[in-house]
C-alpha cells in the first residue's frame, strides 16, 4: 500500500483534532482532541520513518508518547481540580487569570 495514504490519514486526523480544540468548550474533549493531534503526528513520524528507511521517526514517536502520557497526567489533574472548584469543565469559564 502506498505510504502516502498514511500521511493523508495523519493530516486528516490532525485537522479533526485541531478543529476539535478550536471549536469545543469542554476541557476533556479538547484534551482528547490534543491526543488525537499528537497521535496524528506519531503516525506521520512512523510513516516517514518507513518511507526514508531509518528509525529516527519511530524513536521520536516513542518520545511523543512519553510526553503525551506526562501531559495527560498533569492536564487531567488540573481539569479535575478546576471541575471540583467551579463545577464546570468549560474552558470559556476558566478566565480568572485575566485582568
Amino acid at each position: 500500500m502506498n505510504p502516502v495514504n498514511y500521511l493523508y490519514l495523519a493530516a486528516l486526523l490532525f485537522t479533526i483534532g485541531a478543529a476539535g480544540v478550536l471549536i469545543r468548550r469542554n476541557a476533556i474533549v479538547i484534551f482528547m482532541c490534543i491526543e488525537l493531534m499528537l497521535n496524528a503526528c506519531n503516525l506521520a513520524f512512523v510513516t516517514f520513518s518507513r518511507m526514508h528507511g531509518n528509525l529516527d521517526g519511530q524513536i521520536i514517536a516513542f518520545f511523543t508518547m512519553v510526553v503525551a502520557a506526562a501531559e495527560v497526567v498533569i492536564g487531567l489533574a488540573i481539569i479535575v481540580t478546576i471541575f471540583r472548584s467551579r463545577h464546570s469543565a468549560s474552558v470559556d469559564d476558566a478566565g480568572l487569570l485575566k485582568l
Binding site: 485541531a18 474552558v91 470559556d92 478566565g95
Partner: peptide, 17 residues
Amino acid sequence: MRRLQNGFARSYAVSMF
C-alpha cells in the same frame, strides 16, 4: 495589545494555530 488577551483559551489556541 492587552485587548488580545480576552481570557478565552480557545481564541489563544486560534492564534497559536
